[in-house]
Design a binder for these strands. Structure first.
Lengths: 203, 203
DNA sequence: CGGTTTTTGGACTTGCAGGTCCATTTTTGC
DNA sequence: GCAAAAATGGACCTGCAAGTCCAAAAACCG
């Protein structure tokens, strides 16, 4: 665990991870060859195995963590601020925008389901990401409940789970069909549904 | 296109596809070697390339089609019969049951997103599956609208898109986390939401 | 400085899995 | 039954990509 990385070393390592991540986004996990990474980052095989002694697997794991973190970062500060309906819509817009821009190049498409089976570590990364994501949504719902904008009787965690699943599915369908419609529909209808349950306008 | 397959030939071909499908479910798409298929189906390399001249790619394509069809078949007759709330719940139960049993072994996990990029044909298979699936849901919603059980003003296609996305995400999360909670939450909450919008009990 | 450790480059090895080929056996259809 | 076509078995080829190794260069640190 004690790392002996000099400045330069750390920079190189970071460059490799970033380059590998780009390569994964571009070609997909299974299609990435170490040579691609080397070419893309201007490094040699010696370096790759110097910084990632476990070889490709270790590198991909680092990439996965890097990308997983990025997914949540990209949603900030909206995701941590779901305190009003306009804020929810702003988050919605950010999601749409982000995934529209990303298009087919999902950095985690290989991770979900498949890679989870590969490395036990990858499983943990995905699970962790989903866990954090859902937790943030739950907190948003709870806040809206505290302000009376959402029915306090609603199971916040369950609703967050459903919304998260919807988002994942929406992204998945974006990946396979190229259309963002599903993601949009999920976000709009689910948020509407949350609003509808509010004590304000209900039965 | 002119096939010259004898009885035996057809049987062997089917055996290969079925065996390969099992193998894909078991090990995942990328981890399947032709030798695995050969061992599992008691066939030789000559046979594989005899029935699938395009090699692995052609075989996997056949497997994909086979599995995609199965996904919808497994939901019958419920999926084509969403004509009452109990019927909807029966469908829900069937989905839960099916995916609970299937667990991590999703035959299409490699297809979604990733393989879609690989073969242009795989893309079409997934898109086709999603299209048919969504269409069936849409028809269910339309029927419920016709009987007054769902608000006629609801955009059935959009609602179906959202539900489909939710299901996909639920399955995805089942694959990565091993828990069926997300799928359950999506189904229950979405169906509830459809009911809530009904003219019967609404504002 | 100068010894030590880290970083870097790249040639080389290795194993594997997809794909080719052809000889042999079986089935078909008349 | 017999010729043609299809089915089968398996040896062989081939290319690729991960991983190994070591020697040279650069950075670190007292």
């Amino acid at each position: 665990m004690t790392r002996a990385l000099t400045r330069k070393g750390e920079a190189t390592r970071a460059r490799i991870v970033a380059g590998a991540a780009a390569e994964v986004r571009e070609r997909g996990v299974d299609e990435v060859r170490l040579e691609d990474v080397m070419a893309h980052t201007g490094t040699s095989k010696g370096q790759l195995f110097h910084y990632f002694p476990d070889g490709k697997e270790g590198l991909l794991l680092a990439v996965a963590q890097h990308e997983a973190d990025q997914v949540l970062i990209d949603q900030e500060p909206m995701l941590s601020n779901l305190t009003s309906w306009p804020a929810w819509l702003a988050w919605r817009d950010r999601l749409i925008e982000r995934y529209l821009a990303q298009g087919v190049k999902c950095p985690l498409n290989g991770l979900l389901g498949q890679t989870g089976r590969r490395a036990p570590g990858a499983q943990a990364i995905v699970t962790g990401l989903m866990w954090r994501w859902q937790k943030a949504i739950t907190e948003g719902i709870r806040h809206m409940q505290s302000t009376g904008d959402i029915d306090p009787d609603l199971d916040a965690d369950r609703a967050a789970a459903a919304l998260l699943a919807g988002i994942q599915g929406g992204v998945l369908l974006l990946l396979s069909t190229g259309k963002i419609d599903h993601l949009e529909a999920v976000l709009d209808l689910t948020i509407d549904s949350l609003r509808a349950g509010a004590p304000t306008g209900g039965s």
